[in-house]
């Protein structure tokens, strides 16, 4: 009877502690990959619950409650707060101002972003400097932007007032009731357009120059070249940017707070500013939360609708290739 020595089982190449006499299996190997993955995402899941789901759920609760922190009253209100908000003319005024503001910001910012991106796609002297300069508004904090633009808008000591004075014109008050929203939108677009310009420029730079050369040979004018070559390439990033800028404009608060405080007389009191006043100044948490939910629903529906419409199938980079 011969003794057969069994070969050693395959094991780790690195030294293994043998304090228990058995090789230690790593924890990740003792549970299924799915469980291990779930464990890894658990901290993020907890964080999301804490900072997203809980506040959202709590604001829903507040929107369905009568709450007064000073008197200590808290009771279920059903949809009273929503009814109260929807029957308030000030709410509809703020809604109209929000729509007006979003349209102004989106149109201005998108136009400037697209124009800047198209300009920066060209090769010219000073292009790198210009590329660096246009990012400046984006890099400024909103507070700093607000301070700068207060000095530009001020009819007393502002830049525009000084120019008007030089031209012999009366001082301009761009933050008056009729011009407050467009003026605020101008500042917002000024700050947000550089992001769009970079966003679009990245897409423009992947368009082969040959396409434009061939189009020129075919006798296409500049507008047609834009429509048939450029537009399909930037359609997706442009749609994303418009959704971004539109959503951001709908939620704008800080610029309005710094420049007009919602005035004069509510002339720039968009929904977010109204929510701030209702919730944090008046401590009317119920109506404030109800307004927030209405705003959330409207913004979600509009942006999703726009995005779906803008991304209808049948148009895309294939068309560019066809062109």
């Amino acid at each position: 009877m011969s003794t057969v020595t069994k070969p050693a089982p395959p094991g780790p190449a690195y030294p293994v502690e043998r304090s228990t006499g058995r090789p230690r299996t790593p924890f990740s190997s003792r549970i299924s990959p799915t469980r291990f993955g779930l464990l890894l995402v658990a901290p993020v899941a907890v964080l999301l619950v804490a900072i997203v789901i809980y506040p959202v759920a709590y604001s829903l609760y507040l929107s369905l409650s009568h709450t007064n922190p000073f008197t200590g009253v808290r009771r279920f209100a059903g949809v009273d707060n929503f009814q109260q908000v929807l029957s308030d003319p000030d709410f509809w005024h703020s809604t109209w101002l929000t729509v007006y503001y979003v349209v102004c910001v989106t149109v201005l910012a998108s136009a400037v972003a697209l124009g800047t991106a198209l300009l920066l796609r060209e090769r010219f002297v000073g292009r790198p400097v210009l590329m660096a300069l246009i990012v400046l508004p984006w890099s400024l904090s909103t507070y700093a932007a607000g301070v700068v633009w207060r000095y530009i808008f001020s009819p007393q000591y502002g830049l525009l007032a000084a120019i008007a004075q030089q031209l012999g014109l009366p001082p301009l008050d761009l933050l008056s009731k009729n011009t407050a929203i467009p003026a605020l939108a101008l500042v917002h677009a000024w700050q947000f357009a550089p992001l769009g310009a970079y966003f679009l420029l990245a897409s423009l730079q992947v368009i082969p120059d040959d396409l434009y050369k061939l189009a020129k040979v075919d006798g296409m004018g500049i507008l047609r070249r834009f429509r048939t070559i450029t537009r399909p390439y930037i359609r997706l990033p442009f749609a994303i940017y418009v959704v971004l800028v539109g959503g951001q404009a709908a939620m704008a608060f800080d610029l309005i707070y710094f420049l007009t405080s919602g005035g004069p007389g509510g002339a720039s009191q968009t929904l977010t500013y109204a929510i701030y006043q209702e919730t944090f100044q008046d401590l009317s948490f119920g109506p404030g939360a109800a307004m927030s939910w209405i705003l959330l629903i409207v913004v979600t529906v509009l942006t999703a609708g726009y995005y779906v419409a803008a991304m209808k199938p049948g148009s895309g980079q294939d068309k560019a290739a066809e062109a």
Binding site: L38, A42, A45, V46, V49, A50, I53, Y54, A57, Y58, Y61, S65, T67, N68, P69, F70, T71, G72, V73, R74
Partner: peptide, 26 residues
């Protein structure tokens, strides 16, 4: 996992919600 997460979220949110229903900020 989702069930446990949901229960944890509920537990996390329930305390302030119950407090909110009962007392107030006084």
């Amino acid at each position: 996992f989702l069930k446990a997460g949901g229960l944890a979220a509920l537990a996390f949110g329930a305390t302030p919600l119950l407090q909110a229903c009962g007392g107030g900020d006084a």
